[in-house]
Design a protein around this nucleic acid. Sequence first.
DNA 1: ATGTATGCAAAACATTTGCACCTGG
DNA 2: CCAGGTGCAAATGTTTTGCATACAT
Lengths: 139, 139
Amino acid sequence: MEELKKFGLKATLPRLRILQLLETNNQHHMSAEDVYKALLDVGKDIGLATIYRVLTQFEAAGLVIRHHFDDNSSVFELNAGHHHDHLLCIKCGKVIEFVDDVIEEHQRTIAKQHGFKITNHYLYIYGVCSTCYDKRNIT
Amino acid sequence: MEELKKFGLKATLPRLRILQLLETNNQHHMSAEDVYKALLDVGKDIGLATIYRVLTQFEAAGLVIRHHFDDNSSVFELNAGHHHDHLLCIKCGKVIEFVDDVIEEHQRTIAKQHGFKITNHYLYIYGVCSTCYDKRNIT
DNA sequence: ATGTATGCAAAACATTTGCACCTGG
DNA sequence: CCAGGTGCAAATGTTTTGCATACAT
């Protein structure tokens, strides 16, 4: 909880609560709105503006990663230290995390060939998961 | 130009102009605002709302691909038929397109392992290009 | 003609910011 | 105590929508 101090951020209640929520929530990917509602549900009324500010600071501190999935809003996930990519179901919203060393290696090679210093990279594979696919003709 | 009809879209002036712009513009990646301004510059005053509507229809028709780059706005590019990924400079905005067969193959494998039917996928590598990197201590 | 498209202005969102008040160290 | 943090409401930027008018077929 005190990793906040490493980044010169005071350990305030809103920050601690948001961090704790991200650490314990079983859906790792949350929008600012999701965080807001989840905290409200637990009786913690933290302003949405503060949530945006805190998440943005967390992102700058490297505690959190911001993604721009297909819709026009941002989702945040705790930076667990190990980079991973995402496989997303467009029907049910399921998110699967994965790592493929060969893909990682090829990305580095491509960046090098073009003279780029990589800062970060995102791979999103969208599709329909087996559960949703099986249901396709049922309803 | 008449690929519009294939999708049940009337060949109206705004659509033809937007399509033509995307086909001829040397920057392949344009936001709705970019398209709006580019057309204005050529004396074609097409409402921004129409541009959004047309680009969205083009996307649905598969004529255009919509990307959500790091900022919170959408950019569109003509679907040239051959899928490719993107390498982006965070300093100057340069965009390089590339294809890596090994990466593509591994993506298919991963999706299959998880029982997903891929609909599409996006790989964005962000970094600093050599030009910007060389300039880093100059200014 | 007639169903579709467009333009404009207003609405809907997601996100950011200004400012007075509160709080952690 | 005091710098930094928060809440609220207003501002911003992007994208969507309602509706009357204009256009392609």
